[in-house]
C-alpha cells in the first residue's frame, strides 16, 4: 500500500481519484490546490503525487517544480492528470519534472496500472 497525494480543485475529481486508488488498496490524501498540496506533502510524505494542471493559487506545474526542489521529492513519481492533451503542455510538464501525463477523463483500471508501474 502506498500513500498517494491527489491534487485537484474539483471535488468530484478528488472523489473519483480517491475511489479508484483506495479500491486498489492505496492510502489517498487530497488537496484542492498546489499550496495545500505542498503543506500536506511536507507533513505526510507521499510515495506518489497525482496533480491537475489548472488550479487556483498554485497550479499543477508550479507544484511539480516546487516538489522537485524538495530533497525528499526529487525522485518521487509525479503524474499530471489533466484535460490538456497538446504536445506543448506535455513538454512543459516534462520540463517541470513530471513523471507522466494522463489525459482526463481517466480510465480507472489504466490509472491503477500506471500508478503500479510508477511505484515499481
Amino acid at each position: 500500500m502506498a500513500r498517494i497525494l491527489a491534487v485537484d480543485d474539483s471535488a468530484a475529481m478528488r472523489q473519483m481519484v480517491g475511489v479508484t486508488l483506495k479500491a486498489a488498496g492505496h492510502d489517498v490524501l487530497d488537496a484542492s490546490d498546489g499550496d495545500e498540496a505542498l503543506e500536506l506533502a511536507r507533513k505526510f510524505p507521499a510515495d506518489l503525487v497525482i496533480t491537475d494542471v489548472n488550479m487556483p493559487n498554485m497550479d499543477g506545474l508550479s507544484l511539480v517544480r516546487a516538489l522537485r526542489q524538495m530533497p525528499q521529492y526529487r525522485l518521487t513519481p509525479i503524474l499530471v492528470l489533466t484535460t490538456e492533451a497538446g504536445p506543448e503542455k506535455k513538454s512543459e510538464g516534462k520540463a517541470a519534472g513530471a513523471t507522466g501525463w494522463v489525459v482526463k477523463p481517466f480510465n480507472p483500471e489504466r490509472l491503477v496500472a500506471a500508478v503500479g508501474k510508477c511505484l515499481g
Binding site: S10, A12, M16, T83, P105, E109
Partner: peptide
C-alpha cells in the same frame, strides 16, 4: 459499472470548468 461511473462523471467536471 463503478468504473464507468468514475470515468463518465469526469465529463461533468470538465463541463463545469
Amino acid at each position: 459499472d463503478l468504473a464507468a461511473c468514475v470515468e463518465n462523471i469526469q465529463f461533468y467536471d470538465r463541463m463545469v470548468q
